[in-house]
Simulated assay, not measured.
Amino acid sequence: MLLLLPPSEAKSTGGDGPPVDCDALVAPRLGATRRRVLTEVAGVSADEGAAAAALKLPPAVVEAALEANRSAATSPTRPALDRYTGVVYAGLDVPSMGPDVRGLAERSVLVFSGLFGIVRGSDLVPDYRVPVSATLPALGPLTPVWRAALRDAMPAVLRTSFAVDLRSTDYAGMWPPTGPLRHQVLGVRVLSPRPSGPPRVVSHFSKHGKGVLARALLEKAAAGAVPEDVDDVAAVATGLGWQVVQRRVTGGVPALDVVLPG
């Protein structure tokens, strides 16, 4: 089982690992594209005005974000599971994982990244702030850059694994599964109920719920019952006290909606 997660803009700083090795991350064939993006990000980050617009940075984070981006190729690294600290990762709660669950997360979590394309949970990455919605002067919008690169890389990463897709819309756009892989990748939406009308995505609660679900799936797998299909994932969500609705998307591919408690 693999878990496809979005990154978080919030990240821990520092680290004690060596500078990032773009060829040592998961999917080494992405190395050349990673270096191009890394170089371009460092260059644009030298110009605060241009970078803030290109990288869509909120004013409150511009200074720290650009400093991190300028030094991303040489700064200390730490495992991706420890680098990302946003709402999804608060729900995942990596610091409280036992060694079996942590080891499985290091192997099973794939984080989609505007700077690196994808990283595995154990991959050593620096601090940075590069949303995939960014547009860089020499490369243009990042989403099509990564979509082209990931189209060739992802089949070798997934192979025959069942994957649970918990990405947000922006990061799902980096790699939409095609062909037979569509039947290996289960898209999951995490919804919140409303007093009237159908459940809908509420960003904060959806993100946190994705982290909680990912944690529950890892714990299930670490206990020896690896989720292998939509029914297994639905059972884990039901065990959390959530409502589940199985649905079909184009081509009859299964998908799952989970509804958080009110």
Rank of each mutant, 00 (worst) to 15 (best):
L3F: 08
L5Q: 05
P7E: 07
A10W: 04
K11N: 00
P19W: 06
V20S: 01
D21N: 10
P28M: 02
L30K: 07
G31V: 00
A32E: 15
T33D: 03
T33H: 02
L38I: 14
L38F: 00
A42N: 01
E48A: 06
A51Q: 05
A54I: 05
L55H: 03
K56T: 05
P59D: 11
P59R: 08
V61W: 02
V61E: 01
V62I: 15
A65S: 15
L66M: 04
A73F: 07
P76G: 09
T77A: 11
L81A: 04
G86F: 12
V88A: 15
V94Y: 01
S96I: 12
D100C: 10
G103P: 11
V111W: 00
S113K: 04
G114P: 05
F116P: 07
I118D: 03
R120L: 02
G121H: 05
P126G: 05
Y128A: 04
R129I: 07
R129S: 04
P131M: 11
V132T: 10
G140L: 11
L142S: 07
A149F: 08
R151W: 02
M154Q: 05
V157Q: 04
R159K: 14
R159H: 06
S161I: 00
F162V: 00
A163D: 03
D165R: 03
R167I: 08
S168M: 02
A172M: 08
H183C: 03
V188N: 02
V190N: 01
S192Q: 06
P193M: 00
G197F: 04
P198Y: 00
P199K: 03
P199M: 01
H204Q: 04
H204M: 09
G209V: 01
L213C: 09
A214N: 03
A216V: 07
L218Q: 10
A221F: 12
A222F: 12
G224R: 15
V226S: 13
P227K: 11
V230M: 14
D231I: 05
A237N: 13
L240F: 14
V249S: 10
V249W: 06
T250I: 14
V253D: 01
P254M: 13
A255V: 06
A255N: 09
L256A: 11
P261R: 15
P261M: 05
G262I: 01
